[in-house]
Design a protein around this nucleic acid. Structure first.
Length: 424
RNA sequence: GUGGGUGUAGCUCAGUUGGUUAGAGCACUUGGUUGUGGCCCAAGAGGCCGUGGGUUCAAAUCCCAUCACUCACCCCA
């Protein structure tokens, strides 16, 4: 038995890579249009960073992180998400001094030791986008507009759901109201909800259990318990989304798993990924920078998009990308012709043509087959006859038209006669 | 961590109540055309039937264990 890859760690095979590159290219171009710049942060961080940001009592920190001691005995964690490392870098390098508002994005692998399923792996990839230095509702709307536009440009239809989680002023009162409500119904709730009551009360809001949902008729809803400032903020976000004509749904039961979220939260939802409905999600985290030891009043907001989920969706709508074929395939027959073809191939590549040939020197029929299969646009046929007659054949594979190309002089001269035809 | 499903060729899958040498399509190689791709035809190559044990004269097929993959719960992008 040969050595197999780890559970939940997947190879992205050549056939899929074009789709990944298309997504990344579209995202980078769009992010730059919105004024974002890329930041590349390490995959390993001190464990403490994630404990302090994501929250000690969360599942991610409690049972999903790849945490180990390095050779000096320091506790190290492979990042389970992108926001904390970016904020750490922001704080460490005092980026707020360069520009009062920082717009940053990063793309890369994240790691969580979960049981793999559709759209969920142990090593997965996210595009993570952050705006630091303002709590203006306009930025909230702008971020959602950008995420919305990206998915639109990729040809995907998703729905945008938003909510507000309030702030340290109003959330405690809501939490209490919620606890009172579920406390009264405790015996009738599922095991999970009884546990959530103590671990993460907000989570009962999106319980899937039928019986629980019945019990939750009339449950206190977050948007009704916001303080004046948060309510106003949320109303303004909604107004701006309407102004940009972005369709959205207020989902008072939407909660987020990470402790640091405040006020605006949102998810991009699809019905086409099985149990994994969120393609992207994010929200405001106004206290997080201060909590990590950065400037005290440094609001922020961000979101992440799951790349694997995007790829799955694109494959479903049949928008998967294919690597384009060579511009030119050189079919050579005989040792001398193959030598010359090899020189010619190098010259063509230097001239910017994607060029291929068969290194094995098989039959012409076989080489034509390879050219056809690789979807080459042109095939240059050069054999002993052509060398003798100083004229070879250039075949347009789609139209099947062939023309003679003079082989006078050196391959550099042949190249100069071929390139303009192909680039025409 | 919990529960379900599936493991046969590179891929997608057949394989009868257990019964000779395990099959198909696609892909691959070669030939039909001493030098012209896609279509067609022919031939070829490719398998520890996930792995280990058991039952049996006989196991891809039945039993047990184990591993892997997969879907769902939990949680989450």
């Amino acid at each position: 038995m040969s050595v197999q890859g780890l559970k939940g760690f997947k190879d992205i095979l050549p056939a899929e890579v074009a789709t990944w590159q298309r997504i990344e290219a579209a995202a980078r171009a769009l992010f730059h249009r919105y004024g974002f710049t890329e930041i590349r942060v390490p995959i390993l961080e001190k464990t403490e960073l994630f404990v302090r940001s994501i929250g000690e009592a969360t599942d991610i920190v409690e049972k999903e992180m790849y945490t180990f001691e390095d050779r000096n005995g320091a506790s190290i964690t492979m990042r389970p998400e992108g926001t904390a490392p970016v904020l750490r870098a922001f704080i460490q390098h005092n980026l707020q001094l360069l520009q009062p508002i920082q717009r940053l994005y990063t793309i890369g692998p994240m790691f969580r030791h979960e049981r793999p399923q559709k759209g969920r792996l142990r090593q997965f990839h996210q595009m993570s986008v952050e705006v630091l230095g303002t709590d203006q509702p306009m930025v909230d709307a702008e971020l959602m507009a950008m995420a919305w536009q990206l998915l639109g440009e990729l040809g995907l239809t998703v729905s945008l759901e938003i909510n507000s989680l309030g702030c340290p002023e109003c959330r405690p009162a809501y939490n209490q109201a919620l606890l009172d409500f579920i406390g009264e119904r405790n015996e009738k709730l599922c095991e999970d909800c009884q546990r959530r009551r103590t671990t993460n009360p907000l989570r009962v809001l999106d319980c899937k259990n039928e019986a629980c949902r019945e019990q939750y008729q009339g449950i206190p809803e977050l948007p009704d318990h916001l303080c004046d400032t948060c309510a106003e903020h949320f109303a303004e976000v909604r107004r701006l989304l309407a102004l940009l004509e972005i369709p959205y749904l207020v989902n008072p039961f939407m909660v987020r798993g990470l402790d640091y979220y405040t006020r605006t939260t949102f998810e991009l939802i699809t019905a086409d990924l099985g149990a994994q409905s969120a393609v992207g999600a994010g929200g405001r985290y106004d206290g997080l920078v201060g909590q990590l030891g950065g400037p005290k009043k440094m609001p922020g907001i961000g979101f992440a998009i799951g790349m694997e989920r995007l790829v799955l969706l694109l494959e479903q709508v049949g928008a998967a990308e294919e690597e384009p074929g060579p511009d030119l395939f050189i079919a050579a027959l005989g040792d001398e012709a193959r030598q010359q073809a090899f020189r010619l191939m190098q010259l063509c590549r230097q001239s910017g043509l994607k060029t291929a040939m068969d290194p094995a020197g098989r039959s012409l029929k076989n080489q034509m087959k390879q050219a056809g299969k690789s979807r080459a646009r042109f095939t240059f046929i050069v054999g002993e006859e052509e060398l003798a007659q100083k004229a070879a054949i250039l075949r347009d594979m789609a139209s099947k038209e062939q023309q003679e190309i003079s082989l006078a002089g050196e391959p550099a001269g042949w190249r100069d006669r071929i390139v303009p035809i192909i680039n025409r």
